[in-house]
Computed example of a mutant assay.
Amino acid sequence: MVYKIGICDDQVVEQRYLQSLVEKWAKSENHQVEIEVYASAESFLFREETLTLDLLLLDIEMGAMDGVSLAKHLRQAQQELPIIFISGYSDYLADGYDVSALHYLLKPVNPEKLFEVLNRGIKQVALEEQVLLFESSGTTHSVRIKNIRYIEVQSNYVTVHANESIRMKRPLKEIEELLDASFFRIQRSYIVQLNWIKKITRKEVILNDETKLPLARGKYEALNQQMIRYL
């Protein structure tokens, strides 16, 4: 597979540095990449409709339109493109959370840290393509893993909450065996996908869509450790 990676930065020196790092990462991981470079947010938007990027390295401090504004535009347009923010300051961390950025890297970019984040991004791209098949009432449903927010069990029935809710009579343990490390069982009746988690407290897990689910006693530390390992 060829991964298409965009670099949007208004400084030529930074463009070349990031491009060299991406090429070095691709060589070390035996990946093929196509790199697109944009000198401003405006030049990126000019080609937006024809872009098919897998990842975007986005500088925050640019000209008339900054990186945060561009990221917000992409999210409003329902584009789920993984974004890695690049900045010389830590002041914009909150903005990164607001647009669900994959990560926030400070300049000068550390090569090893960037490589780690790029590997995470590739995992996310792979997740985009994966599907699970569920049979309910004689109908087989194909569900993208990335769209599964959480799975719950009530009595003998399991409900998969994705773009639609699919209810089936099947043991939760059978469903759990189909899932990878991006899922975590937060309580006897609930399994959550880590990518959908917005906030964790001692008593509950809050998802990006503001759904609140109970967190079992003793699961708080384990969930945080799983988040660190996976994300």
Rank of each mutant, 00 (worst) to 15 (best):
G88P: 00
L53K: 00
L70F: 05
L70A: 02
V13D: 15
V192W: 03
H31F: 12
L114D: 05
N119A: 14
V192F: 12
A26C: 08
V33N: 06
Q76N: 12
Q79M: 14
T139Y: 04
W196K: 09
A26R: 01
V99E: 00
T52E: 14
G121Y: 07
L102Y: 07
L133P: 08
E135K: 15
S136K: 04
Q76V: 02
K212W: 06
I84H: 01
S69D: 08
I206E: 14
T211W: 04
I228W: 08
K4E: 13
A162G: 08
T50H: 09
L215M: 09
R16W: 13
D59Q: 03
S69I: 03
E176V: 00
L215D: 02
F115A: 15
L70G: 01
Q32M: 08
D91I: 11
L231G: 13
V131N: 11
L74R: 05
L127Q: 03
F183C: 09
N119Q: 15
H73Y: 10
E80D: 15
G88I: 09
K203N: 13
K4Q: 12
E177W: 03
Y89L: 15
A222K: 12
E61I: 11
S87C: 06
L45Q: 05
E116F: 10
L178W: 10
E116H: 11
G218A: 14
N110S: 06
V22I: 06
L70W: 01
V2Q: 14
N195Q: 14
F115E: 10
S28A: 13
Q154D: 11
F183T: 00
L102Q: 08
V99D: 01
Y104C: 05
L57M: 07
E152C: 07
E14K: 01
V68K: 04
I86Y: 01
Q15L: 09
R144G: 09
E29S: 10
T140F: 07
I191W: 02
I186F: 12
R47G: 00
E42Y: 00
H161G: 02
L55E: 04
K107V: 07
F46G: 11
L21P: 07
E221K: 14
V22L: 00
S189D: 11
A162Y: 11
K212H: 14
R229V: 14
R47F: 03
